[in-house]
Amino acid sequence: MNRRLINWTLGVGTPLLLVTAWWVLSENSTNTFFPPLSATLERFQALWLFDHFGSDVMLSLRNLVIGYALATVIGVGLGFATALVPVARWALDPLIHFLRGIPPVALVPIFISLIGFGLEMRLVSITLAAVFPTLIATVDGIRSVDSTLKDVSAVYRLSRGEKLAQVYLPAAGPQIASGMQVSLQVAFIVMIASEMLGSSQGIGAMTLLAQQSFMTSDMWAGILLLGVIGFGANLVFEVIKNKVLAWYVGSKRLARS
């Protein structure tokens, strides 16, 4: 109990300490590229709460959510097919391993030239980049489903749909979730990269524009917002994951104790 309190204090205290240090050290800064935190926060409020919230923040978040959702559906679906259908496995396996090797951000220029600078480009970039971690984790997860569970499903004559939804999906759930978490990070990175490379709207575009116009406080404010969104997205993901995979979390905790 005491140990937990100390851990909590450390977890919350360390960032607070660093922010305080940032505040104090930057307070009298005259360096153009390192503005006082107070100035950054002022700009943060002016820009994001809520002047550009509707036009830029919501736009970025919508791209992120839609792209990520598509990537998850495609990744899990293709993953099931690749793992379970022999033809798909032979056809897709080498391709997947080639494509996963390309850094996701490098795909953005290709899509700009293919599709242009529009919303579609950003969505396609996010989706395609974020598919792979989920896809690969799903394939691994399905392939490592315990053979005893497969035998149980066969002996009790579960239907194909039951096997997929009631056995394979939950059994691979923890691995799929890990893949989805990486996909979320990738989607976030590509969301910003796609805005920085080919857009005039969105948080990424605003931040890059601020940097190019020497509005350093605005730039810092943008990066601060990105940090907050990234942290928040991961937090939401963790909460949902722990709820959906409560059985897994519980059994692991029990196995450790």
């Binding site: 315990d146 005893t148 569970l149 035998d151 149980v152 056995v167 939950p170 059985w247 059994s251």
Partner: peptide, 9 residues
């Protein structure tokens, strides 16, 4: 192997 034949979820 009962521990592997039940669905832990």
């Amino acid at each position: 192997d009962y521990s592997r034949s039940l669905m832990p979820w």
